[in-house]
Amino acid sequence: MAGQVSLPIVDCNTWVGFYPRQAIDLSPQVLLSLMRRYGVARALFVHTTAVFYDARTGNDLAVQVARESGGLLLPVATLNPLQYRGMFEEVERRLQQGFRLFRFFPHWQGWLPKIAPFRDLAVFLNERSVPFLIDCPKVGWATEIAELAREVQIPIILCDVSEDNLGEVLCVVKSVPNLHLETSCITQPDGFEMVCAEVGVDKLVFGSGAPLHYFASALFPLLHSSLSEEDKRKILVENLRRIVQA
């Protein structure tokens, strides 16, 4: 089985912090050691404190972790739209600090993608040309997010898609130009080939969920697929770069 790979990798789905739901070590040291092992150049991470406790505190911690990593770990800001008050100020503050991406976690925080505060937030990010990732594990959510995506121009990346709703996700990613798919849900080499054939390779962005999940479990199905080196490179690094630079 492959270890370190020759292709450059940027991972858009990683975690740092204390994980309240299981005793899994999500320290920056573990993430950095996985990155060295598999040749990951950069990892975009969210701080668990921002997701499970308080966004501002967690986003501050993310800045600190990123600084200490010497630029290897790139922070992704998050917010809970249910808290609403001060939401737009928090976005502005993070943009001034240099955050280039946001990520949202409706399933962990108990809200739905169709709620009004999230719609307002998406419009606000759109006005500032800031793309975002959003976790989408439930049936019906991709359809709701697609309706929102049609109203904005910024790229939106669907993360944490499950086996149950992958078909729905493919349907919307195929038809809505600014929707993209993070790859940790694709468990088969054949799956990569099928998804590329359905929605186009430019729509896929590599993510592992590490260190919450074994990194190799996300990487090896892609490496063992019959996609060309050029397509793999797009998924592993170039598509994300294009999204962030846009």
């Binding site: 996985l34 092992r37 088969q188 080499p189 190799a216 479990s217 090896f220």
Partner: peptide, 14 residues
């Protein structure tokens, strides 16, 4: 249901 590289990757990485 799942490709073997998912679990073989886990065992390699563990």
């Amino acid at each position: 249901r799942i490709h073997p590289t998912r679990s073989l990757g886990m065992i390699q990485e563990a």
